[in-house]
Design a binder for these strands. Structure first.
Lengths: 201, 203
DNA sequence: AGGTTACTTTAAAAAGC
DNA sequence: GCTTTAAAAAGTAACCT
C-alpha cells in the first residue's frame, strides 16, 4: 500500500497515463528509373491508366495490392501515394516497375526510391482543452470557424500535427515511421506537462 | 553610386506604391464594412509588417489587405466574419482564410479565439430577436462553454443554436431557418449544436 | 428529419504553366 | 501560386429521400 500511495498521486498529471495508439495511414514516396519513359506507350499497353497531359503531366498508374496510385512522368520520375508503410511504398514502386517491364516497356534500371512524407493518425488517452492549448503551445493555431483541429508545427521532428478535442490527431510531414512515433510521444508529453489533457472515465 | 541609386528606385519606391495601393483599398473596405479607424490602423500595421517580410511577393495585394483587415478585426474582437470580408473585397473566402493563416504563421501573431458570445448580438439584431432572448442565449452559452461542448465547433453555429434554444424557451416565434439565415450557417448545424446543448444542459 | 457524398486543414514529390 | 495523388481527423454543407 505504501508504494502505491507514493507512485500514483505524483504520477498523475506529470506522466502520460496511456500510450498513444498510432496508425500509419499514407506514405508518399518519390522514385526514378533514371531514363525517359514513353507515357503514350504505357497508355496503349495498360488500358486502366489515367493520362490527361493537358490537365496534368503525370500518368496515374493504380495498383490493387498494395493499394496505391503512382504518378509516372516522362522523365522516368515517379510519385507513389497510398501505401500504409515505408516497406509497402517501396514494394509498390517495385511492383509498378515490374509490371511495366512485363508489359513491354523497356526499363533498364532498378528504381531509386525515397520516402517523402508519412501521414499518420493517433489517439491520445483523453480529451484536449484546445482553446488553452492554442494559448500555451508555441507555433500553434486554432481557428474553429475554419477547421475544428488545432494546427501545431513541431520543430523536432519537423512535422505538423492536427490535434482535435477528442484527443485524436493527424501527424504529417515525417519521412520515417520512427519520426511519427517520436512526434506523437513529444506532443503527448508536452500536453501532459502543461495539463492540457482531460482524462475522464 | 549607380548601384545605390538603383536599389532605391527599384526596391524602395515600389514598396511605397504597393503600400499606397493597399491603403486605398483599406479605405474602401472601411466604408463597406463600417469598421472604425483603430481597426484600419491595425490592418495597415499588419500589412506593412507583411510587406517588410516579403510576404506580398507573388501574391495578390487585395487578398493580403483583406486578410490583414480580418486579422485586425480578430485582434480587436470586432465581429466581422471571413464571409463579410470576402464579400466586401470580392475575394474568395478560402483565399482570405489562407492569407490570414499565412500572416498568423509568418508574423507570429497570436489571436484570441472567436467568442460565440460576441456573435450573439449580431445574429440577434439581424433576426430581430428580443433583448430577453439574447440574455437567455448568453446564459446558455456560458453553461455550454464551461461544459466543453464548444471545442472545435464554429462559434457562429454555437451562438445560433443558443439563440434558437432561447427563442423556444421565451416563446419567441422564430424558425431554425430564420436564425440560421441571420447567422450564416445551415439549419442542420443548428440542429446538431442543439442536440449537444440538450444533452449537456438536459433541456 | 436522416443519409450520402463532398469539401475544409496538414505534408511532400513529380513537370509545366 | 496552380494542376494530380492518397489518407486521417471533426465539422459544416449540399443534395436527395
Amino acid at each position: 500500500m505504501a508504494s502505491r500511495y507514493i507512485y500514483r498521486p505524483f504520477i498523475k498529471g506529470s506522466v502520460p497515463q496511456t500510450k498513444p495508439i498510432v496508425s500509419i495511414e499514407n506514405v508518399v514516396a518519390s522514385a526514378t528509373v533514371n531514363q525517359t519513359v514513353n507515357l503514350n506507350l504505357i497508355t496503349q499497353i495498360f488500358p486502366d491508366v489515367e493520362y490527361h497531359p493537358d490537365q496534368f503531366p503525370g500518368l496515374v498508374f493504380r495498383l490493387r495490392s498494395p493499394k496505391t496510385a503512382t504518378l509516372i512522368f516522362s522523365s522516368g520520375k515517379m510519385v507513389c501515394t497510398g501505401a500504409k508503410s515505408e516497406k509497402m511504398a517501396i514494394q509498390a514502386v517495385k511492383n509498378v516497375v515490374q509490371k511495366l517491364k512485363k508489359g513491354g516497356i523497356p526499363l533498364e534500371n532498378e528504381p531509386q526510391i525515397e520516402i517523402q512524407n508519412i501521414v499518420a493518425s493517433a489517439s491520445l488517452g483523453g480529451k484536449i482543452h484546445l482553446e488553452l492549448a492554442a494559448r500555451v503551445l508555441p507555433r500553434s493555431m486554432y481557428e474553429p470557424e475554419q477547421f475544428p483541429g488545432l494546427i501545431h508545427r513541431m520543430l523536432d521532428p519537423k512535422t505538423v500535427i492536427l490535434l482535435f478535442a477528442s484527443g485524436k490527431l493527424v501527424c504529417t510531414g515525417a519521412k520515417k515511421e520512427s519520426e511519427v512515433y517520436r512526434a506523437v510521444g513529444n506532443l503527448h508529453t508536452l500536453l501532459e506537462e502543461k495539463n492540457l489533457m482531460i482524462y475522464e472515465g | 553610386r549607380l548601384r545605390t541609386w538603383d536599389s532605391r528606385s527599384q526596391v524602395h519606391e515600389p514598396v511605397d506604391r504597393n503600400f499606397r495601393q493597399a491603403f486605398s483599398e483599406l479605405d474602401r473596405l472601411k466604408d463597406k464594412l463600417a469598421v472604425g479607424d483603430a481597426v484600419i490602423e491595425k490592418a495597415a500595421y499588419v500589412y506593412r509588417k507583411a510587406l517588410e517580410k516579403g510576404l506580398v511577393r507573388g501574391r495578390s495585394i487585395s487578398a493580403l489587405v483583406a486578410a490583414a483587415l480580418y486579422a485586425a478585426c480578430r485582434d480587436t474582437e470586432t465581429p466581422r466574419t471571413l464571409k463579410d470580408i470576402a464579400n466586401a473585397s470580392n475575394i474568395k473566402k478560402k483565399d482570405v482564410a489562407r492569407c490570414y493563416r499565412l500572416l498568423i504563421r509568418e508574423l507570429d501573431l497570436k489571436m484570441p479565439v472567436v467568442d460565440p458570445v460576441k456573435c450573439v448580438a449580431r445574429i440577434a439584431s439581424k433576426a430581430g430577436l428580443s433583448e430577453k432572448t439574447k440574455r437567455k442565449a448568453l446564459e446558455i452559452l456560458k453553461k455550454a462553454e464551461e461544459g466543453k461542448i464548444s471545442a472545435g465547433k464554429d462559434p457562429m453555429g454555437l451562438a445560433a443554436a443558443a439563440l434558437y434554444v432561447a427563442c423556444v424557451m421565451n416563446g419567441e416565434n422564430k424558425t431554425q431557418k430564420d436564425v440560421a439565415e441571420a447567422a450564416g450557417v445551415t439549419e442542420v448545424t443548428i440542429r446538431n449544436r442543439y442536440k449537444g446543448l440538450k444533452t449537456h444542459l438536459k433541456l
